[in-house]
Amino acid sequence: MINPQHPLQALLEKKIAIIDGAMGTTIRTYGMKEADIRGERFSNAGKDLLNNGDLFSLTQPAMIGDIHRRFLEAGADIIETNTFGATSISQSEFFVDDPREHGGRKDPEFYQKIIEDASLSSLAWEINEQSARQCREWADRVANDTGSPRFVAGALGPLTVSLSNSPDADDPGFRVVTFDQVRQVYAEQTRALIAGGVDTLLVETIFDSLNAKAALVAIQDVFEQDGKRLPIMISAAVGRGGETMISAQTTEALWNAVRHVKPLSVGLNCSIGPDLMYPFLEELAVKADVAVSAYPNAGLPNPLSPTGFDLEPADMARYLGTFADEGLINIAGGCCGNTPEHIAAIAKALEGRAPRRIRVESAVEIAG
């Protein structure tokens, strides 16, 4: 039996799909303060929460919905859930005392307690499910208004821990977490995102390829155990040498490490601007036999810029237009520093431009 082609795959064969911009950058333009993210629910939290942007999905849902709306109206075909750090491991940074401040250390025993903490697990689930529902609502609303399908990508970020490196220079074999612990929190996140109604799962901003492998194993576990499959998107963050920044895996090596999951797309995002990303994207476009995505930062950080990054909407449109002219991309957008105005400029610049050609035999077919 041949499974029907997923609608997102069909879209990628017709056009360069537009993915949204930077949630964190756009949140900052709303001028939110510590009291705004806390609300009544988290008013007694012992740590500052303002940098916990995922939490806004619970305390300021109207703002998050407005951001999704703006990106969709700017031309985004795909919007991401506000779940970059929505795992119990990442949320523990904001709700659990750091043992290092009291002479202890973070280690697998510490993180096992984090994983078994019912309140953290419940919070992570709620953030993922609610963020997915918020995205779903706006994607469906704009799709109905425009007659053009819009898709929701469940974002699984890189975590605040590394499986590849030791934080202890005197003990290079030490790891703060185990592969199975990372796998478990990603499985929980995957299930919550699916419960919220996402169309695809996006393992993104990969600094540590072993963390990403754990996420991909977790996703496959969930698919097999729960009997539901979705397309998988993969996007890595690379340094100036084209390597993942913690595990130092080259672009080609990363692709070879993940291609067995038959992803819908593989690509690069964040970390460096579009000019620096170009040669590594070019290499990936040659090697990969699936759709290729690119959503780079708006240049390098610049604290004097309104967005915190150098490049204006017209600059991003020009660079992404070059990617399209060179036949490198199937999905385009922006990461840090990219507002709805940036995405609107990118969408306008890429309108009518042909997507990178994907070999027919690599087309992803997913059962509903």
Rank of each mutant, 00 (worst) to 15 (best):
residue 23 M to K: 07
residue 302 N to H: 09
residue 304 L to I: 00
residue 189 Q to G: 05
residue 347 A to P: 05
residue 77 D to C: 09
residue 250 T to S: 15
residue 330 N to M: 08
residue 90 S to T: 13
residue 65 G to W: 00
residue 115 I to Y: 05
residue 92 S to R: 05
residue 299 G to I: 02
residue 302 N to C: 12
residue 227 G to H: 07
residue 27 I to H: 08
residue 15 K to A: 09
residue 44 N to Y: 07
residue 132 A to Y: 07
residue 315 D to G: 13
residue 228 K to P: 01
residue 355 P to D: 10
residue 172 P to L: 06
residue 97 D to C: 09
residue 225 Q to I: 14
residue 164 S to K: 14
residue 213 K to L: 15
residue 189 Q to A: 13
residue 26 T to D: 09
residue 9 Q to V: 01
residue 16 I to E: 02
residue 208 D to P: 15
residue 355 P to E: 05
residue 17 A to R: 02
residue 145 D to F: 11
residue 329 I to N: 01
residue 211 N to K: 00
residue 309 F to G: 11
residue 131 S to F: 06
residue 200 T to V: 15
residue 23 M to Y: 03
residue 17 A to E: 04
residue 205 T to A: 10
residue 212 A to N: 10
residue 249 Q to D: 15
residue 252 E to S: 13
residue 3 N to H: 15
residue 6 H to F: 00
residue 78 I to L: 13
residue 196 G to N: 05
residue 342 H to P: 09
residue 284 L to D: 06
residue 261 V to A: 08
residue 95 F to I: 03
residue 326 E to G: 08
residue 231 P to G: 08
residue 199 D to F: 00
residue 7 P to F: 04
residue 329 I to T: 01
residue 29 T to P: 13
residue 34 E to V: 14
residue 82 N to E: 07
residue 366 I to F: 01
residue 166 S to T: 10
residue 64 I to P: 10
residue 276 L to S: 14
residue 133 R to D: 02
residue 62 A to K: 15
residue 152 V to K: 03
residue 59 T to W: 06
residue 43 S to L: 07
residue 166 S to L: 10
residue 96 V to F: 01
residue 202 L to N: 14
residue 138 W to S: 10
residue 321 G to V: 04
residue 168 D to V: 07
residue 366 I to A: 03
residue 364 V to H: 03
residue 64 I to E: 02
residue 7 P to W: 01
residue 251 T to N: 09
residue 52 N to K: 01
residue 10 A to F: 04
residue 181 Q to W: 06
residue 303 P to C: 09
residue 273 G to E: 10
residue 303 P to H: 11
residue 41 R to L: 05
residue 297 N to E: 08
residue 227 G to K: 11
residue 311 L to M: 15
residue 16 I to Y: 00
residue 95 F to S: 06
residue 35 A to R: 13
residue 135 C to A: 11
residue 221 D to R: 08
residue 3 N to P: 14
residue 284 L to S: 08
residue 24 G to T: 04
residue 277 M to Q: 14
residue 265 S to D: 06
residue 114 I to C: 05
residue 94 F to H: 10
residue 160 T to D: 14
residue 247 S to Y: 05
residue 30 Y to V: 08
residue 285 A to N: 04
residue 357 R to M: 15
residue 38 R to K: 08
residue 130 Q to Y: 03
residue 33 K to S: 09
residue 306 P to L: 03
residue 121 S to K: 15
residue 98 D to H: 08
residue 118 A to Q: 13
residue 50 L to D: 00
residue 257 A to K: 11
residue 187 A to Y: 13
